[in-house]
Nucleic acid binder design. Sequence first.
DNA 1: GGGGATAGCATGGGAATTTATGGGATACAA
DNA 2: TTGTATCCCATAAATTCCCATGCTATCCCC
Lengths: 170, 170
Amino acid sequence: MFLSRNTNTLDAKGRVSVPADFRVEVGAGRESGAGIFDGIIVWPSFDGPYLEGGGIALLRDYQALLENMDPYDDARIAFERAIFAESRRLSFDANGRVSLPKELAEYAELNGQVTFIGLGRRFEIWNPAKYESQSASARKMARENRHRLRLAGHRNISGDGAGTGTGAAS
Amino acid sequence: MFLSRNTNTLDAKGRVSVPADFRVEVGAGRESGAGIFDGIIVWPSFDGPYLEGGGIALLRDYQALLENMDPYDDARIAFERAIFAESRRLSFDANGRVSLPKELAEYAELNGQVTFIGLGRRFEIWNPAKYESQSASARKMARENRHRLRLAGHRNISGDGAGTGTGAAS
DNA sequence: GGGGATAGCATGGGAATTTATGGGATACAA
DNA sequence: TTGTATCCCATAAATTCCCATGCTATCCCC
């Protein structure tokens, strides 16, 4: 599971260290029957100026998801083109670094420092400054929606969800 | 798994370098019991002015798929004629190039530069300019449909999911 | 608990290898 | 011959590999 936020430097050759946590995560996915690729897979988000990534296991999950859709569903084709076609395999060097292709660095406006954002099954790569505002608004929105963060497993006593009533204060 | 997009030049002799990633991909499929053919298999798409291709393993998958259909299902026969009959075996030279038959280059309107599009189990070959518009609209459609890109697999806690997305980014 | 040893991580720079590409030589067919 | 396809070699650029170093967190021993 990809967790935590981590900022590393992007050197003159376009190399950046992948957080050690992330490396063991993709390694774990790899052992369980996936290929022999030791690295991460990264593509430009189609939702903003940042990169998305994960291990080969994540891509296999997406592949399975897409292969359950109609082969000529326009959305399926769009996802294949937006994710598979735009993604790059970045393999680790002996020190756990990857070299980030120029196009990807330019897309996400990365220079000097890059921030890895662990998000469970996948992660994102941001320009640290750009991520700051995201982080702030995410906290705000999480607070406003906190009543939706209800773990299942136990029975839900009250019929209504919102719990604390009005909740969403500023 | 075929990933990423890669534009290479088609020289005066009709040769083009197959991306190194793709070469190892078809090589991997080849080791696991398939034939000794070292190259790719390409045919004109029946859905547009581009080529489709893959390793010998992909063709075996199509064969298995078609053999599950009724032998005289018209669609089966059509698929066999449109894929198997139109496909060409393109073997690598010592530098990882293939020479693209003229008919195929003409069909896809390829000259000068050709773009390989990795799409998971298979790939496509496009005229780079023609692919540009495809790519742009694919990104737009992927963004509009991003709520459909929901990975299953783990328990689904709440009855309703992220349906319309949280709208987090903006 | 203090202090030093140790291991892992992030980073920098140079060397060696791979990749993509062009061109010539050779074999084969029309 | 002429055109076509295949093979071989050369080269420039890009990428990967390898080694060294500073830093930090952890461990161990006294």
